[in-house]
Computed example of a mutant assay.
Amino acid sequence: MATTYDATNKKSGTFKKVLGWIIVVLLLCAGGYVYYRYYFVFGEGVKSGYLNYAVKKGNVFKTYEGKLIQEGFGSSKVGTGISSNEFEFSIVSDSIFNVLEVNSGKYFDLHYKEYHGILPWRGNTRYVVDKVVNMK
């Protein structure tokens, strides 16, 4: 008995394979973008200054936020004159927040990580403090 060749079945199988690969590539690209935007550490370093405040706030996600006032003068916007340098940051853990909360007004050296994007459960800023290096 001779078998017949079905061209429409062959085209349908090829189309499904190509569509499957396109979906896989799009998912990988989307996953790479999300990783780069929200989880890739763009920069890290240490900022020093006097702790202005450390608070827990948020409507849905309660996050820890803080602000350092850095020594020296700078201009945050062109044409606005001289203003103090401020570093606003989010805090990654309860233990770091507790140290900052009870020592407001002291001089700190804080290690931070900078991300490209903000996640609501990580904080309100792109800068996330993960370690207290020094406190005076």
Rank of each mutant, 00 (worst) to 15 (best):
1 M>H: 14
3 T>S: 13
4 T>N: 10
4 T>A: 12
6 D>Y: 07
8 T>I: 07
9 N>I: 09
12 S>T: 12
16 K>V: 07
18 V>P: 05
18 V>I: 15
20 G>V: 01
22 I>F: 06
22 I>M: 11
23 I>N: 13
27 L>F: 06
27 L>S: 08
28 L>C: 15
29 C>N: 03
32 G>C: 10
36 Y>M: 15
40 F>W: 12
49 G>F: 02
51 L>G: 05
52 N>R: 13
52 N>D: 15
54 A>C: 03
56 K>T: 02
60 V>Q: 10
61 F>E: 14
61 F>G: 08
62 K>T: 10
66 G>S: 09
66 G>Q: 09
67 K>A: 14
74 G>M: 00
74 G>K: 03
76 S>E: 09
76 S>V: 00
78 V>R: 14
90 S>R: 05
95 S>P: 00
95 S>Y: 10
97 F>N: 06
98 N>L: 03
102 V>A: 13
105 G>D: 05
105 G>E: 03
108 F>Q: 05
112 Y>P: 04
116 H>D: 11
116 H>Y: 15
117 G>H: 01
118 I>K: 09
119 L>R: 05
121 W>S: 11
126 R>D: 15
127 Y>H: 11
127 Y>L: 14
128 V>N: 11
129 V>H: 04
129 V>P: 05
132 V>G: 06
134 N>P: 01
136 K>A: 11
